[in-house]
């Protein structure tokens, strides 16, 4: 464990909590892509299947349980509790455009052709595109509430810190996980465009981020 990965995990946790609290307190999920949240729940489910078979550390186990619980709670709030505030017509990204390539690729490129490895690889590839429906919704509606942008900011920060973590681990312990690194870099690139908008729009005072 290093400071970059710890900070990354904390940012990830903060992002998930920001979103969950926003939905719970505003009792609305307007402007939030339910599809992205479903994809994140699938990512955690397919990645943490080893929760009961492999014990790494208390931290690892606890964080996995917390991420699973919070992501399912978010999906529950969106599709069940506050479903009347869910504007599904704006959440129109075609998930099959993501799932088909990701499933295909995880069968082609993996470390071992075993169910657990393929599901882990699937979760890695899926995570790199899971935010697409949310970013698509923002470009479609042309705006994002500031809380949603803070959520995306911390999510992007988590990915950037994971890249720093991989650089650190490569130089200190020679660790290099090709699938995770390539997928993580692709995922972080999606946030770069958003980071620019976040800094120029949201942090300059305007509550809403309106796209040009």
């Amino acid at each position: 464990m290093n400071i970059f990965r710890l900070a990354g995990d904390v940012c990830h946790l903060v992002a998930i909590i920001i979103l969950l609290l926003k939905i719970w307190r505003s009792r609305s999920c307007a402007g939030i892509s339910g599809k992205s949240q479903v994809l994140f729940a699938i990512v955690f489910t397919t990645r943490y299947l080893d929760l009961f078979t492999v014990f790494i550390s208390p931290y690892n186990t606890i964080m996995k349980v917390v991420f699973l619980a919070l992501s399912y709670a978010t999906v529950y709030l969106i599709y069940m509790r506050f479903r009347n505030t869910f504007n599904s017509e704006n959440d129109s990204f075609r998930l099959e455009f993501l799932l088909v390539p990701v499933i295909g690729l995880s069968f082609l490129e993996n470390y071992a052709f075993t169910p657990l490895e393929i599901l882990w690889t699937f979760s890695i590839f899926l995570e790199s595109v899971a935010i697409m429906p949310q970013l698509f919704m923002i470009t479609k509606t042309g705006e994002a509430e500031s809380i949603t942008t803070h959520y995306l900011f911390f999510l992007g920060l988590y990915r950037a810190l994971y890249i720093a973590n991989w650089v650190w681990r490569y130089h200190t312990e020679g660790f290099f996980d090709q699938i995770a690194v390539v997928s993580g870099v692709v995922q972080t690139i999606f946030y770069i465009d958003f980071f620019y908008l976040y800094v120029t729009k949201v942090l300059r005072g305007r509550g809403k981020m309106t796209l040009p």
Partner: peptide
């Protein structure tokens, strides 16, 4: 295929 690493990252 590379050896299956210990997956210690979240």
């Amino acid at each position: 295929d590379e050896d299956i690493k210990q997956k210690d990252e979240l």
